[in-house]
């Protein structure tokens, strides 16, 4: 039971279809799970991704030769049949199913199993071999419900507004930022965005994703005119000069890493919100179970430990070295 997909130093490769999935070195044909930088890299000849993922990829990667595919639609590539299925990670994100001669693999990219109200919700796909991430593959990572975090988030914002402070929330500009916007209660005040976030907003809105009204903060914006507002910005902007224009602020940071006190303190925002676009421990285990797969390939995250646990609990699991999750600082911020 192997051969449909193999792991090479350029990325996950399908010999029967001569394509790669989320390759990290330039290749001829790349199937892309989603638009995050560690999965959708530049330099490939041809790209295939969901219709929903492509606009952002074009924005980020420039002039690429691409083809879109609908969720659930099957396509023959050489001797392989491929289809894309919602991964629930960010808008447009997909798990890629590859079938070769009856052997089924699913490469999940990044995923989460809970519905965030924005991304196409995760769908379990039956397979023989499942390639999973393990960004948060430790039992200490379990997420509070989105409703609970939304309550905390809005409470913090309301408190800031009452204190005459601008709330400034650091979040990765693709996915996390929009998800957070949707969690906010717009009756508290105006939602402002950093231009990097607003660029993604504009693309997603054009695609038909329903996002709340936002005010883009540009050079000419009188930042202090929007009393009681919240600003969504890339994490790097948090402590920068840019943030100073808002006057007194309280900073927040939203990531699964905020579950750990040490990291919370290292990031040193005034508030950390535990909210991740990756599956938590129970999410990972349930997703794996629902695939019915026996062979599990573990990519980025706590690979060694997670793999050992899978092997101890009846799976045949192995670590697959990839270059996901370690391009730059972004990976931690995106989590």
């Amino acid at each position: 039971m192997n051969g449909a997909l193999i792991f090479t130093d350029k990325g996950i490769y399908c010999p029967a279809g001569d394509f790669y999935i989320d390759p990290w070195r330039p290749v001829d044909r790349a199937l892309i799970t989603h638009g995050h930088a560690d999965h959708a890299r530049s330099g490939h000849q041809r790209y295939l991704a969901t219709h929903q993922a492509l606009p952002v990829m074009h924005h980020r990667l420039g002039d690429i030769q691409s083809q879109g595919i609908a969720y659930g639609e099957t396509q023959k590539i050489g001797d392989a049949t491929v289809s894309f299925h919602p991964a629930g990670h960010i808008p447009g994100s997909a798990q890629i199913r590859v079938e070769v001669g009856g052997e089924v693999w699913v490469v999940s990219g990044d995923y989460k199993v809970t519905n965030d109200g924005l991304s196409e919700p995760f769908e379990p796909v039956k397979c023989h071999s499942f390639v999973t991430e393990s960004t948060f593959g430790l039992p200490v990572f379990t997420w509070p419900s989105q409703a609970e975090v939304a309550k905390d988030l809005n409470q913090w914002w309301a408190d800031c507004a009452a204190d005459g402070k601008t709330a400034i929330l650091g979040a990765y500009s693709l996915g996390k930022a929009q998800r957070l916007m949707k969690m906010l209660d717009p009756s508290i005040g105006p939602i402002m965005t950093h231009t990097a976030v607003e660029a993604t907003n504009a693309i997603l809105r054009t695609q038909g994703y329903d996002l709340p009204e936002t005010i883009a903060v540009t050079q000419d914006t009188d930042a202090k005119a929007h009393k009681g507002g919240i600003v969504i910005a890339p994490p790097a902007a948090l402590g920068s000069n840019w943030a100073k224009k808002f006057g007194p602020v309280s900073s927040g940071f939203a990531s699964g890493w905020m579950r750990l006190r040490g990291i919370r303190r290292r990031r040193a925002a005034d508030r950390g919100f535990v909210i991740s676009d990756h599956a938590d421990w129970t999410g990972l285990l349930s997703a794996i179970k629902n695939t019915g797969a026996e062979n599990i390939y573990v990519t980025h995250g706590y690979t060694d430990i997670f793999t050992q646990h899978l092997n101890n609990t009846g799976y045949t699991a192995q670590v697959v070295p990839t270059e996901f999750g370690d391009t730059d600082q972004d990976s931690e911020d995106a989590a």
Binding site: L138, V140, L260, G262
Partner: peptide, 16 residues
């Protein structure tokens, strides 16, 4: 293993 990553036993236990 989780403890060795979290770095604090009290926290690790509280989290699991």
């Amino acid at each position: 293993e989780s403890y060795s990553i979290v770095g604090d036993l009290a926290e690790t236990i509280a989290l699991v």
